[in-house]
Design a protein around this nucleic acid. Structure first.
Lengths: 149, 149
DNA sequence: CCCATTTAGTTACCATGATAACATAAATGG
DNA sequence: CCATTTATGTTATCATGGTAACTAAATGGG
C-alpha cells in the first residue's frame, strides 16, 4: 500500500529529475498512478471483506471457475495463474476449504498434488461478488481522480 | 498486491459490463492500472530493501526532512501526512530509532507526544535512496507496459 | 474548577504477503 | 533400473498492514 497524501513538491521532483536525467512528468504520473491504484485496491479490499472474501480468495475462485474444460485445478496451476507464493496459496486454499467454498481432493494422477474445485457455495459466492467488483472498477475509472484524492 | 497474470477475458468483462451498465474499457483499464502499479510497488520494495528501508520507512524520512521550518515532527503529524494507522506508525518509528535513522524525544509542550527528528545517518540514508527512487519511477513511466507485463 | 470528551500513543491480536528449509513424489538420464 | 534432479506442497518464521481496546494527557462545557 503506497501512500503520501501530499506528493513530493514540484521543486523536489524537478531537482532530482534534472540531476539524474529523469522526466519530472513521469515521476509525478507514477506517483499519481500508485496512489490511485492504492485507493482502488483499498476500496476493493473493503468490498471483498464485506463478502467474506479477499482479493486473493476472490481471484482463486475466478481462476478455478473460468477454466473452460475442467472442474478442478491443482494448487500449482492456480498459483501459476496468480502471482502469489506457494505457501500463501496453501494457506488460502485451506481457508477456502474450511469455509466450504472449494473442495480439496487428492490428485489421482500425481500423489504429490491436489485438485481444487468450486463447491456450489463457492460458485454462488463468486457470482454474488462479481457484479459489484466490476461496478467498482468501472466507477473508479469513470471519473478522473480529483487533485486532493 | 494485486495480481492476475491473465486478465479476465473480454467476453467475461463484456457480459458483466452489459448487465450492470458498466463500461468494459473502464474495467480493463482499471485492471491494467492495478497490475502496473503492483509491479512498480514490488520493484520499489526490492529497491528499498536493498537500502535497508521500506516504502513506509522511506516516506517517514521524507516527511520529516521536507518540513521547511522544523527539525522534528510528532508521530501524529507524520501519520497524518502518510496514510497509515497509528500502531504501524509507532512500530515504524521505533524501528527507525533502533536503526539510528531518527531520534525520538519526549515533547516539551505535550506530555502525551514525542518529537521525531532525522539523525545524520537518517538524512544520509534518505539522500542515498532518493536518486534511485526517482530513477525507477521515471523509467517505469517512460515505456508503456507491454501486453504480457 | 471539575468531570466528560477528545486526542496521542501503545499494546495485543489478526490478516496477508514473503523466503527458507523440508518431505515426498515424479521425472530423467547414465 | 536406480540415483540424481526436479517439482509439489507444507511448515516455520518474518515483515508489514489493519482494528479494538487501553493508558495518559489535554481540552472544554457546565
Amino acid at each position: 500500500m503506497f501512500f503520501l497524501k501530499e506528493l513530493p513538491s514540484q521543486q523536489m521532483v524537478a531537482t532530482y529529475a534534472e540531476t539524474y536525467g529523469a522526466d519530472p512528468a513521469h515521476i509525478t504520473s507514477a506517483l499519481l498512478m500508485m496512489r490511485r491504484a492504492s485507493l482502488l485496491i483499498r476500496r476493493l479490499d473493503a468490498y471483498f471483506a464485506a463478502h467474506g472474501l479477499s482479493q486473493l480468495r476472490f481471484l482463486v475462485l475466478i481462476v478455478i471457475d473460468r477454466e473452460p474444460e475442467r472442474q478442478s485445478l491443482a494448487p500449482n496451476e492456480i498459483a501459476s495463474r496468480i502471482d502469489v507464493s506457494k505457501p500463501v496459496m496453501t494457506r488460502t486454499l485451506q481457508s477456502l476449504q474450511q469455509d466450504g467454498l472449494i473442495s480439496l481432493a487428492a490428485s489421482q494422477t500425481d500423489k504429490r498434488s491436489k485438485e481444487a474445485a468450486l463447491t456450489a457455495a463457492g460458485r454462488q459466492q463468486l457470482q454474488d461478488a462479481l457484479p459489484g467488483y466490476f461496478r467498482i472498477l468501472s466507477e473508479e475509472m469513470a471519473h478522473p481522480p480529483a487533485a486532493g484524492d
